[in-house]
Simulated assay, not measured.
Amino acid sequence: MPPKHDDATPGQKALALYSLLLFTGRRYTLTALAEKLTCSKQTILRLIRDMELRGDSLEMGFEGKERWYKIKTPAQKPHLAISPQELQNLVMCRDMVSHLVPKAIRDTIDHALAATTTLLPDFDTRSQAFESHWRTECKGRIDYSGHVEMLAAARQAIKEHGICRVRYTGVGKTQAREHLFAPLECVSYREALYLYGVKVKDDDITAPVGPMMPALHRISSLEPTGEHHKHEDPDPDRSGFGIMHCNPVRLTIRFDSFAATYVRERIWSEDQEVEGLEDGGVRLRFTAANETEALSWVLSFGARAVVEAPEAFRDAVRDELAHMAESYAPENG
């Protein structure tokens, strides 16, 4: 069950539910609504019943075994206003992700934000609404300016549940390989963009090979095949540390007092346990989605982190350190 927001009044919850259904125009399952509003399914059902009693026009159906809900499009478009603070929040979001998207997309974002100024109650406040106090520091930025058309094609394929033929060059590879790929969503992770979806068999697009997450900048071509799929997310669990969920492992790592502040401040996995130590350090127990990313992460702390368990992961860290020591060994003579 998602955590509850005890400070939200019943009226605020009802308004949040109504706004979500009305302004998105999308279908939401009971589970999705409970997650969005961070409350129980029982609360959502009660709010839905209240909406029906008020005469709100709801559509309902089933997605698998779970019921979904949607508000019918009203005959007249709602008359709304946006405050300068709300517009500033949108500008903040733009500034925090602008380094990830090509300039052509940034320009469309700027145009859309400019158009929203017409919704301000006082048009004279538009310059104040566009004041920006945010910036993003990024090292090792990827230039996506040559990927505008590919990103657009990927988004269209996601929308239409289309199958694509993708040529992709993996890490450490020199030749691109061709895959049949069903993209499900775009993912931003550590200053890079990825496409997440399902690799399917060449002779049977209904047969999944497994999850696939190619980095956008390593895709040399993405061509829709004209075929469509019904694949769903093969790995909906995002609770572990890392982007690729394969062979998850439970780790126990001890950090010294200097690294403890950084570690304690963050959520590394939903099931993490942080134990304070007498020397000011911490012991972190958490689930890593895969060992490869966890290994790089642990090594980034240097001597301030010590793997305690499992033994196989300790061996992997020890082997990597031995290879690093060889690379830095002084030359004879």
Rank of each mutant, 00 (worst) to 15 (best):
D143W: 09
L37G: 04
S40M: 03
F23K: 11
E331M: 13
R26T: 03
D6E: 06
P121E: 14
E291P: 10
E293G: 08
T9R: 07
D124H: 14
Y194T: 04
E265H: 11
V263N: 09
A81I: 02
R27V: 02
R238M: 10
V166Y: 01
F301A: 08
E191T: 10
G210W: 11
M150Y: 04
D315N: 07
T31S: 10
I48C: 00
L299G: 07
L120Y: 01
K159C: 12
P208R: 03
L21W: 01
T287F: 07
M244K: 09
W68I: 01
C164T: 05
G242Y: 00
R106H: 13
G61F: 07
F286I: 02
D319W: 12
R218I: 07
R318F: 12
T169Q: 08
L119S: 02
A129T: 01
L299I: 09
A81N: 03
E311K: 11
A112E: 11
T174A: 06
S300G: 06
F123N: 11
A115L: 08
V198D: 00
I44C: 00
H231P: 00
A129V: 02
A207I: 05
K139S: 12
G226N: 05
R264V: 04
S269I: 07
P121H: 15
E137F: 08
A305F: 04
D122G: 00
A8L: 13
A303W: 06
D202V: 10
H147K: 09
G302L: 03
W297F: 13
D233V: 01
T206G: 14
L37P: 05
G162T: 03
K41G: 15
M96C: 10
Q76R: 08
I267F: 10
H228M: 04
L15T: 09
G226R: 03
V307L: 00
D202M: 14
K70F: 05
F255Q: 06
A207M: 08
L87W: 01
W134I: 15
N290F: 12
E331R: 10
T73R: 14
R264D: 10
Y18N: 07
L21D: 01
P78R: 01
W297Y: 06
V282H: 15
L216V: 15
D237Y: 05
Q76G: 06
P84Y: 13
Q76D: 13
Y18M: 11
G11K: 05
L21V: 04
V274R: 02
F258C: 00
R266P: 13
P2T: 12
F123L: 15
D50N: 13
